[in-house]
Every structure is written in C-alpha cells, then in structure tokens.
Design a protein around this nucleic acid. Structure first.
Lengths: 213, 213, 213, 213
DNA sequence: GATGAATGAGACTTCATTCAT
DNA sequence: GATGAATGAAGTCTCATTCAT
C-alpha cells in the first residue's frame, strides 16, 4: 500500500481540506455542509479553500477523486495483495466496509453508505464530471470483482461468465450500501457479503462473522 | 388494483402538487428544485403549496409516501396479480422499471434511478422520517421479493432460505438503480434482472429481451 | 411635464429602489455602494431588490434609464416649454444643473458630476448596455442642443452648422461636469454655461448670475 | 523633453509596475483590475507591489501622478516646443490624442477616454488625493490652453479673455473624451478639435484630417 | 529580499418562508 | 381563499492584504 507524501505545503493543505470535506459530506451530504463549516473543521480560512478549488462543487469532485483512489487502494488493492483465495478477498472487502460502517453507526446512529455514490447522486445532475468520475471508480471496482469471479470460476467453485458475475457482485455491493443506509442496519452489508460469497460458490461460510474476526 | 379517487378539490390540488414535485425532484434532485419551480410547474401559487405542506421537506415526505404507494401498486401488485409464475413476476417488475428508465434516458440522456431512494439519501440526514418511510416501502418490496423467492423454492427451481434470497433480490434491485444511474446505462437494469432470474433458478432466459417484449 | 404614476405596489417599490440607488450611486459611485446599503436606505429587504433586478448591475442600468428619462424630462423638456428664446433655454438648462450641484456641494463639499456619465464610465467596460443607454440619452441631449443652435442661427445670432454647434454645446456640457467635479468647483458649470451662450451668439450676458436668479 | 532615468533597480521596478497598472486601469477600470492581475501582468510577485505601494489606491495615485506627468510631457510640452503657431499646437494635441484612441479602438472596439479622469472619477470619493492630483494636472493643461488662447488673441485671430477661452478649451477637451467614450466613436475627439480651432479663430481648417496627417 | 500560502472582511445572491391585500 | 409582495437567514465567493519560509 502506497502512502502518498506531499512535498509542498500547498499540497498538504489541499489534501487536508479534501479529507475533511470528505468526512463532512459523507456524514451530512453535500448540501448539508456549508463551505464555512469545511473551513472551520479543517482549521483554514474559507478563502484558502477557494485558493485550491474553483468552487464548492469542484471540492466535491476532488473528494470523489481522492476518496475513490484512496478507497480502491485501501480496500481493494490491499485485499488483493494479502489474500490469495477469491473468497477471502471478497470477504476482506466486505468485512472492511462493514467494520467502518458499524463503528460509525455505533457512534452516530446512522449508516452513511458509500460517500462516492452519495456525492454522485446528489451532484450528478448539475455536475456530470462527478457522476462520470464515480462511474470510473466503480468500473475499477467491477474489474476487481471480475477477477475474483474469474478466479472462483477457474477453481471450479463458481460457474458462468466472469463478466456478468463481476457485474452482479458490483451491483450487490451498491445494494448493500443502499439497503444498509435506508434501514440504518449495517448488518445488511454482511447479508450482501454472504450472498456474494454464495454467488462465487461459497455458501454456508461464516468467514464474515464479526465475532470470528 | 385500487384507484384512489379524490373527493374534494383540495385533495386533488394536493395530489397534483405532489405529483408535479415528484417529477421535478426525480429529475433534478430535491435541492436542485426551488419551491417556486414546483409552484409554477403545478400552476398554483406558491402560498398554496404552503397551505397543504408545512414546508418543502414535508412536501418531499408526501412525495415519498404517495409515489411509494403508487409504485408498489403499479409495479409490484399488478405484476403479482397478472403473472402467476415467479420468474414472470420478477421479469415483469424489471421490465417495467427498465422501460421507464430507458424511455426517460432517450429523452433526457440521464438515468434518474429510484426517486424514493434519491430523496431518502438526500434528506435522510436531516429528516429521518423520509428515510424511515423509504425503508418501510422497501420492506414491502422485500416482502414481494420474498414471496417470489418462496414460490421459486417451492417449485424446486431455487434453493436456500427465502428470506435471504428475498433480501438479495431486493439489494440487487437497489444496485440496479445505482449502477444504471452512475453509468447512465439503463441496460444495467436488465443485467440485474437477468442476475435475479438466475438467482431464482432461471438462468439463460431471454424473458427480458426488449426486442421480445 | 408628465409625472408618472405607478399603479401597482410593485411598480412603486421598484421605482423607489431605483431612485434611492440613483442617489447613492451618484454620491459614492457604483462600487462604493453595497447592495445592503441600497436596501437599508430604501427601507426594503435586500431580497426585494433582487426581486426586481437581476443583479446589482441591472439595478445600475435601471438607474441610468430612469434617471436619464427623468432628467431629460425635467431639465430639457421643461426648459424648452417655458422658454421660447434659445439663449433662455440654454441658460435654463445650465442654471438648473448648476443649482443642483451647488446645493449638494454646499452640503457635502463635493461636486458629483453627471450621474449617468459616472455610471457609464464605471460600468461601461463590463456592461456595454449601460454605456449604450447613456449614449442614447446624450444623443437626445444633443438633439436638444441642436435645436437651440438652429434657433440661434435662424435668428441671426449665431453662424455655422447647427449640427456641429449642437455637438460642441453637448461636449461643453460634458466638460462642465468633469471639470467641476475634478476641481470641486460648481462654478465651472457656470463658466461652461457662459461659454455656451457665447457660442450661440450671446456673449456678455449675466443671465446665469446666481445673484440675479 | 526630459527623459527620466532610474538609477536603482527598485526605481525601475516601481516605474514598471506603475506603467503596467496604468494600462490595465485604463482599459478595465480601477475596480475591474485585481492586484493579482497587475502582479502577473508586471511579472512581479504580489507582495512586491505592496513593497512599493501602501495599498491599491496608492498605486492608483502613483499612476495618476506618473501618467499625468508623462502625458503633459509628451502631449503638451512637445507640441509647444515643435509648433510655434497656436493653431498648430492645438491641432498637435488633438491629433495625438485622437491617434492613440483611434488605434486602441481598432484593436479593442472601445474608447477608453482619459485615464487620469477615469481614475479620478472612480476614486475621487474615497481618495481625494487622486482627484486633487488630477485637478492639478488639468490646471496645467488649462495653463497650456490659456497660452494657446493668448497667442491666438495676440495674433488677432481670436477675441476675448484668454483665461476664459483657456478654460473653455480645456472643458471642450474633457467633453471630447467623455463623448467619444460614451459613443465609442473616436472621431468625436476630432469634432472637439475642430470646434477648439474654431474657438481660437481657425474655422474651416482641415489640419486635423487623418488622411492629411 | 522574494515568493507561495494564508487570511479577514465583506461582497453579491438565493432560498424557503410569511405577510397583506 | 388566492395572490403578489416582502422578508430573514444563509450561502457562495472574491479581494485586498499580510504572513512565514
């Protein structure tokens, strides 16, 4: 896992703003957060934000890009590196996501779903770049899922077309976020995880059991 | 199928406003639509809206309730009545949703996803009622899916727990909306439809083929 | 002299805002006056201003139009109606302008020049409509001047081309404003007045003497 | 004609900034130009500007002073040196001004008028020094005009008081700038030039004909 | 001494919402 | 009861100016 190091002070400030904004947008939506709040949460002046971003929407785009990259890095790549078996990789992904959401839900009583999708849905209409960027990120997710599917098929656990299976796994992931958020039940993420494992030929596993991990 | 009839003029006005608002919120998001626009699109005075709804968010809640009821009625109930076989019922649901989205996408070049989820995600944070109402609606959806699953299991096509299968089918539906919206490709709804049919034991069907319908 | 009466409440509000803004812009320039100040000086809410004007510049355009019309009405038309002789008409115009400026200068110690020209110079670059509207107004002024010139020529007092003479009289009027404003001496307006009278064949008159009027 | 030579590097930098700012303020007004733009146009760091000038208005004051001095030098002094006859001196002044404006108007489609007056009108209210400095400069202009008038009277071409005639010539020059700027017609400067020549006793001349020069 | 980074204060503008006819 | 008019409270953004390296 690469950790990006920022040479200049400006780059650090910019990245800091993006990451603070990501947290706020995730928790309270794009329209629910004022630029003033981002500024004070990031402990910078509002004008500093506008030094690095053309406007508020541009900040959201940066959030999608940076957060998307970081998440792909953290969740998918690392799970691919550490776990050879496809079922373990899939479980790693779901377990990671579940943990984050369960923890935050405990603290705040709400499930916030996928921040990238959240921003894309809220801004997609008047800022297509955000939607396109989100689509690009989930294309990458789907590629990961496709590899998992291909491995499972190759090892004889699953059958069918890896392309379609990868897509279904991805859609199920989307559904996991949405359904957990609507119901405020993070466990629904685990449900989707088990269903996904089943789809690649591993039903009846308890690999995702929170108590076991 | 029940058709609700509005006796008084006020009830008709109210329903008209809700339905106009539903269309606008769907296409351009809650925050993207000003109350003024709702008023002029519905051809009523803005103050009239405030006669029927406490505030804009209350209007959104009404949209979720009314639209949710109508959709359940239209998509799910009717498909249950007309089609005995579970695969046909599932296909009916997906085909209906696909048609609406494909048509709108032709006209506007964008896939708008599920309006109920859209509002719930946008307002859920500062208006939990909307999220709760949306959750209730999708509980009903899940109940439908569970019945379909149960029928498929009963007829020997599918195996497993109808409860879990119903949930997976529901999550896949959520994923269908999200993924179609992000990619602007309505066909992704069909992908999820086929995956769902496969999950209940009907792979390799072309029951959803647009050309066949 | 026509006094315009505004039927509706909105029209009155709008006209009131314009006239308050005209005064402020005249005294402190377009950029020196905040919309907040216009609002509080007019005793309306800021949002009311934006109900009637697209933006601040649009308000300035309205000022130019309304003030231009009013001034032409008040200064030029009325002087034309009441005074048959060209020299009297010219003197009437200058005397009126001088009085206004002298009075205001006494109160505030500054000569503010022509408000229309002031706005046109300040906004002309990024809002050509203002400059064009100002040009239109001064075309009308020049037409008045041309008539005065023509009458003076017809009566044998002046010689030359009424068109060129009208233009020169107009330019001298512009110069009167500018030079009085730069020097903070309203009397320079009278200087230009005497020079103008001389140009139409009436040197050595004391028709503009403040003490005589 | 004196050419000022700057010994130190700092003096050169300062003069360079002033001259760049002069051009920008002239073309786009004081408020239309950000300090950032001056800095990047002058290819210096913004903080460098604040090393030489207390604030933006102070820069404007320097522009008025430097540009005023340079213009007086260039336009008036030189015309006085090279042309003995008053009508030739006057024509030289007008022709010079006209040429500059006509050329710029070809390039940019706009007549920018007198930069000194422009700044003075825009800043006069909250920075009297600028207005006072502009007044001082135009007192010098008037002195030149008075000399021309005196010479014309001495040679029998014109009659009247040289003081008043000088003032009128100066006001007509102001009017030339204003009227050309409002109408976007540089030729109006020539109109004023001919009128001025006529005022000092040289009607019917074509000394200003662009084709002849 | 020069430069990128940061700031404070205030500008304009837009809502959702309520008033008064 | 319906409608045009009005409002308050924010919100986004910009700019001149100063800091720290």
């Amino acid at each position: 896992m690469n950790v990006q190091v920022f040479a200049t002070r400006g780059e650090r400030t910019r990245a800091h703003i993006v990451s603070v904004a990501a947290g706020l947008f995730w928790r309270r939506n794009f329209h629910g957060v004022a630029v003033d709040e981002v500024a004070s949460a990031a402990e910078v002046n509002k004008a500093t934000i506008y030094r690095y971003f053309a406007d508020k929407r541009d900040l959201a785009l940066a959030v999608v890009k940076q957060h998307g990259a970081a998440t792909l890095e953290m969740v998918f790549q690392s799970s691919a590196e550490h776990n050879a078996a496809p079922e373990a990789r899939l479980a790693g992904i779901y377990y990671h996501i579940y943990s984050v959401h369960a923890e935050l839900c405990e603290e705040e009583g709400d499930v916030h779903g996928c921040p990238i999708v959240g921003l894309a849905l809220e801004l997609g209409q008047d800022m297509p770049e955000v939607r396109v960027e989100a689509a690009r990120i989930f294309d990458a997710v789907e590629a990961h899922m496709r590899e998992i599917a291909a491995d499972a098929i190759a090892s004889g656990h699953a059958a069918g077309d890896p392309k379609m299976l990868g897509r279904t796994l991805t859609q199920l992931l989307h559904g996991a976020f949405t359904s957990a958020r609507l119901s405020s039940e993070p466990e629904r993420i685990l449900d989707a995880g088990y269903a996904s494992l089943s789809l690649i030929g591993f039903p009846e596993t308890d690999i995702l059991d929170p108590k076991a991990n």
